[in-house]
């Protein structure tokens, strides 16, 4: 009983760190560069699927899958960027929405590799080489490290050269260009970093949950959730995604335990609405404004 109880809360802690990392990767693009992507689940799902396919179909180490996933998603980021960077604001967001939808269709139909809608079950063989662990504590440590890695990259970028360039491009692209900034390159670099980190999240998810099917990793809900956590926590701040996930992920877990289904979504929606109305700059942004005044 106590072990079950413990596992339940450990799972929430793991997912809090994972969501914070995914949202942090999105925050680099959207919070700093103004590239409000709704296609992050494409990177997430590809990272997860490649890990699972390399491991189950070819019997190779999932670590190889991780490396392959990073390569494929950064490559995809370049392909996606080409048409989407011409679009501004909401049009960019809508265009990026297409990619996870397309990926879900591919995953459903390319059965030789993905086993289609029935999904891939990953055999439980614990070990560091398989990145599968018997104890959830190991996953928690790994998820925490991943979260801190994203946080560290964001800190490093925040007010550094890339961060300043991204904010410049977000504020006014013409002004940025007249300062000699190659605006396309700056956007491309941040999209590739974001895609790679999101693929690492996908790798983690595959080896943690040990089961994948197309909707569980490519769903638009994931892309939206990734964005919401940063918006609630504070866009364009290194801590924002972590704070957002610390508040919302446990809330979501507790709500689904006590209510499930409809009431859960209703309460979650009200919490979201309250956050956006009361703290439009996110929790971190609002607290900063308080401290200043």
């Amino acid at each position: 009983m106590s072990a079950l109880f413990n596992d339940y809360y450990l799972n929430i802690a793991v997912m809090t760190c994972l969501w914070a990392a995914l949202s942090g990767a999105w925050n680099l693009m959207a919070g700093y560069g103004g590239l409000v992507s709704l296609g992050q689940s494409a990177f997430f799902g590809i990272g997860a699927y490649i890990t699972a396919i390399v491991y189950t179909k070819y019997g190779l180490s999932p670590w190889l899958g991780l490396i392959a996933g990073i390569f494929v998603t950064t490559g995809l980021a370049v392909v996606i960027s080409w048409p989407c960077f011409r679009l501004r604001g909401a049009f960019f967001s809508l265009a990026t929405l297409v990619f996870p939808i397309a990926m879900e269709i591919v995953a459903n139909n390319w059965s030789d590799f993905t086993r289609g809608p029935s999904g891939i079950a990953i055999p439980f063989r614990p070990g560091l080489d398989t990145f599968i662990f018997s104890s959830r504590w190991a996953y928690l440590i790994a998820a925490f490290v991943l979260m801190m890695m994203v946080y560290g990259i964001t800190r490093w970028m925040h007010r550094g050269k890339l961060g300043l360039y991204l904010i410049a491009v977000r504020d006014d692209e013409a002004t940025a260009a007249s300062a000699g900034i190659n605006t396309v390159k700056v956007k491309l670099v941040v999209t590739m970093i974001s895609a790679a980190l999101t693929a690492v999240g996908g790798f983690f998810y595959a080896q943690y949950i040990l089961f994948l099917d197309p909707p569980s990793v490519f769903s638009i809900d994931i892309s939206v959730q990734i964005a919401l956590l940063s918006i609630i926590g504070g866009l364009g701040t290194p801590l924002g995604p972590i704070v957002g996930s610390l508040v919302m992920t446990p809330l979501d877990g507790v709500l689904s335990q006590f209510f499930g289904g409809g009431p859960r979504l209703l309460i979650y929606g009200v919490a979201l609405l309250a956050a956006v109305l009361l703290a439009p700059k996110g929790i971190v942004g609002t607290m900063k404004a308080w401290r200043r005044s």
Partner: peptide, 26 residues
């Protein structure tokens, strides 16, 4: 080639110092 815009276009979420740093980083 350095230019100013008739309709001023500062980078509004940055400080004066950071606005100028963006160019100095070149």
């Amino acid at each position: 080639i350095g230019r100013t815009f008739q309709i001023v276009k500062p980078l509004t979420s940055l400080t004066v110092h950071e606005n100028v740093m963006v160019g100095a980083l070149l």
